[in-house]
Design a protein around this nucleic acid. Sequence first.
DNA 1: GGATCAATTGGACAGTGTCCAGTATAACTG
DNA 2: CAGTTATACTGGACACTGTCCAATTGATCC
Lengths: 194, 194
Amino acid sequence: MYSLSMPTARGPGQRAGLDRAAVVAAARSVLTDAGYAGLTMRGLARHLGVAPNALYSHVGDKTELVDLVLDDVLGEVTVPDEVSVHRDPLAAVRSIMTASFDVLLEHTDLMPHFLARQGARGDHAVRLGEVTLEALARAGVEAADAEETLRVLIVTTVGFAAFAPAGGPVPPDEIRASYLRALDWLLASAVNDR
Amino acid sequence: MYSLSMPTARGPGQRAGLDRAAVVAAARSVLTDAGYAGLTMRGLARHLGVAPNALYSHVGDKTELVDLVLDDVLGEVTVPDEVSVHRDPLAAVRSIMTASFDVLLEHTDLMPHFLARQGARGDHAVRLGEVTLEALARAGVEAADAEETLRVLIVTTVGFAAFAPAGGPVPPDEIRASYLRALDWLLASAVNDR
DNA sequence: GGATCAATTGGACAGTGTCCAGTATAACTG
DNA sequence: CAGTTATACTGGACACTGTCCAATTGATCC
């Protein structure tokens, strides 16, 4: 699949059947087993059997690429349906957050980029935010406070995910435990703080 | 001071009177008014009127350089003295955290790097951690829980600082308000959670 | 005063992201 | 179905980046 053979099988003008989704998927794959430092436009192009410039037909920028990967990752978070949000909104919030956390754990490399970009603005991220806001409202958090609470939850989730990479001094499961605890603390105060 | 004139005033071997501290200070200055993207070894060397390689006599790496800048920044946090820690430990914790937050606010660019490095390990950072741990213990947090609480506080502080850059969608003072609130929530739960 | 160590420079190496000008293919139009 | 237009892709380059090596000079120590 890597087309290490046949270095130049295509002349200029000939299509490779590339696709924005394919580029994002490949980037994500490279990212998982080579880390952020290992994600380079040229390397990615090599993996796709394509000249480096070809990527710029589908992605404006490396930054945008990483943004897309990030939202792609976020798309794997299973959002609780209306009824469960209605029945136990606090559990729904907790579920969204922990699910996001676990998904982000697989791409801790992206968290610094996430923060540098001041949060994800992709479709999936937006949807997660909306559902969470709704659940918070149902849980009894005032509309004005809900947005702030959401911000706190996001910062905490992303922050902990950023701290969790395997090579670090603190083992990931310990980080996860700390995260869950912090989440409990925050939610407890958020609903009682009025 | 920038020596834009006299491009090559020195031959090989001649000293420039450079210093590790001077390099760090210059890096910090560049960082404040050009951002992380504007901090390049070559540019920094130019500001110091020195060849790029000269920096490597005082700093092993760009990564190490940024680490040093970070700890230099943290050195500006005023640590509460023993007596105030003894008298009102919770206020001491809050003071350390908010002071750190405010200092980090001036270098939000560094926060992604901070997270990518999984925390600061410099002298100043260590000292802040020790004092905070002591204050937490005095506030009634068990030794085992104190470390976890400290971790939560750090992640929150750094995370919010990372989200605060001026260009962002949310104004900095609003971010700061959210941070203070989150801090209150966390501390309240941390001391009651036993 | 002579030897040793550290700071500095010139020059280079291997990368990086991204742009410009062509070329061939696909899609659209009449 | 023919002709035009938009788009995907390549070759090749540009302007960078961090960092290493060898040579040279200044400071330091005995």
